[in-house]
Each structure stands twice: as C-alpha cells, then as structure tokens.
Design a protein around this nucleic acid. Structure first.
Length: 218
DNA sequence: GATAGGATGCTCT
DNA sequence: GAGCATCCTATCC
C-alpha cells in the first residue's frame, strides 16, 4: 500500500502548477496542498491536513499578524519556501510560504500519511504503534521528516534544498475536502481555515482551545 | 475513546 | 515574564 515508485518525475507542468498555486491566495494554496507529497531526509509524506494563515493585520492567529520580526521574516519573502518555527519549548512546525513578496501568508502542514521511507519514519518515532500516527500532527510531521531550524527559509520547488514538494499523484476530489476552525489558536478561532481530507485516518484530532479565564485585573 | 495535566525553552512585549 | 499554530502519559470510562 503506497504510492507507485518509479512513476513520472516531477514534470515541468506539475511544478509550474504548484508555483502558481503557492503564489496565489493562501486559502487556495492550502486546499491545493492536500494530496501533495513533502519529502525530506529520505521520508515522504502525503499531506492530509493543513491550515491557512494570513499576513499582517487581518489574521490575529498568524505569526505575521503584528508585523515582521526576526522569527517570521521568511513569511515576508517569496512563496514556495519553508517557514519553520520552534514552539512549546520542544517542537518544530513546518509551513509553506504563499502569496506575493511582502504579504506574509503561509500554510501550516499539520498531518499526513508516510508514503516512502516508512522504516526510517518508524525509527524517528519510537513507541508509535500505528503507522497512521507517525505524522498525525504538525510536530510529529517534522519529527518524521527530521526537520528543524536548519531548513528554515529553503526553497521547496526547485530541488535545491533539503525539502521538496511534489504535486499530488492522484488529484484530490474537491468534495472530499472538509473545512473547520484551526487548531490551538487563541485568536481568529472562528475562521474556518483548517482543511483536511474527509475520513482520512492520519488527520489529527481536533480539540477546541480551552476558554481563557476572564479578563485580567484592572 | 475521551480528557487532564506536565514537560520545556524560544520569542516578543 | 507571559504566552505559546504541541505531544505524551495516566486515568477514566
């Protein structure tokens, strides 16, 4: 059960389609990334769950919401590059930068199915019993791909960096794409910018963020 | 299957 | 110093 190996290499048409997709609106890019395959360090993951984040101003959940900082600088650059950040004191998360230079929108890669390098993926995720849990969550996905800050800012579409992104082997039918609120965000929770493949076992569990206690003292 | 709580350190105010 | 775009384990169904 895996994708056909030895299939056609990344075609010029396929890459240019992805180029155009990532240069466009972040929501379109997010939907289009479902089914695409990310490869790094000899493991490949077919994306089953992503989230869209807008740039400055409009989206309080976005790292770029309050403007450019050293951490989010990559988001302000050209599309098709990796934005990798460290969170919760121990985890890395991988995003794909989208939209024109200066817009700072990006798509968080939340989960997927390991379709190549399964043995290596299992070694990188000791204690995981089910293969479907190997990359079921944004930090788990970066663990399987063995990514950290060293790949931040690298290009994904031109085969020059440690990460590569390839078009979907089989086109994802639009009706199988579901949408809902994003996971774990404090602001903008009402924006349904999480996208996933309906019924796919590798999609991460959704838990609403606990409501914050009432406002601070005067 | 669901939920609760702890781990852990960078980033920005 | 507060706040995280999370994961894992234990516990209770």
């Amino acid at each position: 059960v895996g994708v056909r190996a030895g299939g056609s290499p990344l075609s010029r048409a396929g890459r240019s389609t992805l180029d155009a997709l990532l240069a466009g609106p972040v929501v379109d890019a997010a939907r289009g990334l479902l089914g695409c395959v990310v490869t790094a360090n000899e493991v490949s993951v077919r994306l089953t769950e992503v989230e869209a984040y807008a740039g400055v101003g409009a989206d309080p959940a976005s790292h770029a919401h309050r403007g450019r900082t050293p951490r989010n600088a990559v988001m302000f650059g050209p599309p098709g590059h990796a934005y990798i950040y460290f969170t919760y004191g121990m985890h890395w998360c991988l995003n794909v930068v989208t939209g024109p230079v200066g817009e700072a929108s990006a798509v968080l890669l939340r989960a997927g199915e390991v379709v190549a390098g399964l043995d290596l993926a299992r070694v990188r995720r000791p204690g995981v019993r089910l293969d479907r849990d190997l990359a079921r969550g944004p930090a788990r996905l970066t663990m399987v791909l063995d990514l950290d800050r060293s790949a931040n800012g690298t290009a994904l579409l031109h085969g020059t960096g440690p990460i590569s992104l390839q078009p979907a082997v089989q086109r994802v039918p639009a009706p199988s794409i579901r949408t809902g609120p994003r996971v774990g965000v404090a602001g903008g929770a009402e924006t349904p910018w999480r996208f996933w493949l309906d019924g796919d076992p590798t999609v991460s569990a959704y838990r609403p963020r606990p409501v914050r206690p009432p406002g601070p003292p005067v």
